[in-house]
Structure formats: structure tokens, C-alpha cells
């Protein structure tokens, strides 16, 4: 398969993220103060999950650098598999979920991962996640390097 130019992927990722729901667009337009440089993660939270089950993490990724950055990998000690996924709409009122490959985070921009759009999937949980627990997630970026984020598990009913 022909590789996708990073800039095009970046723009596509930003547009897709913005269009997934109205909350994302609103957040990106006005509500963030970007860091002077590097990447900052804000408002991270995870859904509860059962052992051997799945969970999802949502967050805002603020890239203060002028350069776009690429997410290389994700890891967490509580899950066998961690991937960036996106929910998308298919024909005939069908909804689907797929892995987002080689996501690029635009320079001086924000990618808002919210329910109904992009989310970090935790699969094969090796322990149950209950409200009040904390998950440690490591995001590895090409330029910003490893960023470790504590992610609180929050109630499902409060978040949707």
C-alpha cells in the first residue's frame, strides 16, 4: 500500500476528530491553552472494565511544538494490547470501530479524543477497572518521546 504523506494524514486525523461529534469541534476551537513546547495531555479518563475485557481512554492531546508529532506506540501494564481506535459511521445506520494507523498530531494543535470518536482501547485487561482506580498509560511520540499519564477510572453514567 502506498504510504500516506504525514501532512495529509495529520489533516485527515484532525478533520475526522473534529467531525466525530460536536463536542470535539467546540473544544478544539477555543478552550485550550497550548504548552510552549512538546505535548501535554489533559482531561484523561478511562471507562470501567472487567478482567479479560476492554476499556477505553479519552483525553485531549495538546501539541505545543510547531512541528507535527506522530504517535508511535501505546502501552499500559494493565492491558495486553493497547491501540488507538476510532468509532465511525457506516451505511444503513451501522456503527463500526477500527484501528487508527500512524496518527499524526498537528503542530500548535489539539486532538480531542471524546466518546463517539477517537479513543485508546485497552484490551485483554489483566485486572478489573473500577471507578476510583487509576491506570498508567505511556504514549510514545516520535518527537516528544515517552509521556506517562495517570488516568482515573470514572463512572460511565457521568461521562456520556
Amino acid at each position: 500500500m502506498k504510504p500516506v504523506p504525514p501532512l495529509l494524514l495529520s489533516i485527515t486525523f484532525f478533520i475526522l476528530t473534529s467531525s466525530c461529534n460536536s463536542e470535539n469541534t467546540e473544544l478544539q476551537s477555543s478552550q485550550f491553552e497550548l504548552p510552549d513546547s512538546g505535548i501535554e495531555i489533559t482531561d484523561a479518563w478511562a471507562r470501567p472494565g472487567r478482567i479479560n475485557g476492554v476499556s477505553a481512554i479519552y483525553m485531549n492531546v495538546l501539541n505545543g511544538s510547531a512541528e507535527p508529532d506522530t504517535l508511535i506506540s501505546l502501552s499500559s501494564s494493565i492491558a495486553g494490547l493497547v491501540e488507538l481506535h476510532e468509532t465511525y459511521e457506516l451505511a444503513d445506520d451501522m456503527m463500526g470501530m477500527r484501528e487508527a494507523e500512524n496518527p499524526v498530531f498537528p503542530g500548535r494543535g489539539v486532538v480531542s479524543m471524546q466518546p463517539g470518536g477517537f479513543h485508546i482501547m485497552l484490551m485483554q485487561l489483566n485486572q478489573p477497572l473500577n471507578v476510583g482506580d487509576e491506570v498508567h498509560l505511556v504514549l510514545k511520540f516520535a518527537l516528544a518521546g515517552d509521556i506517562s499519564v495517570p488516568v482515573p477510572v470514572q463512572s460511565q453514567s457521568e461521562q456520556n
Binding site: R47, G49, G53, V54, S55, A56, H85, T87, M95, M97, P115, G116, H119, M121, Q156, S157, Q159, N160
Partner: peptide
Amino acid sequence: TNCPDICSFITANVSK
């Protein structure tokens, strides 16, 4: 239940 994103919306909507 292995759908943590959109099915959570559906479930929460019924609750709401």
C-alpha cells in the same frame, strides 16, 4: 459489552 465506545452511549442513553 466489548464495545466500550458507542455501546456505552446507547446504554447511557437508555439510562438517561
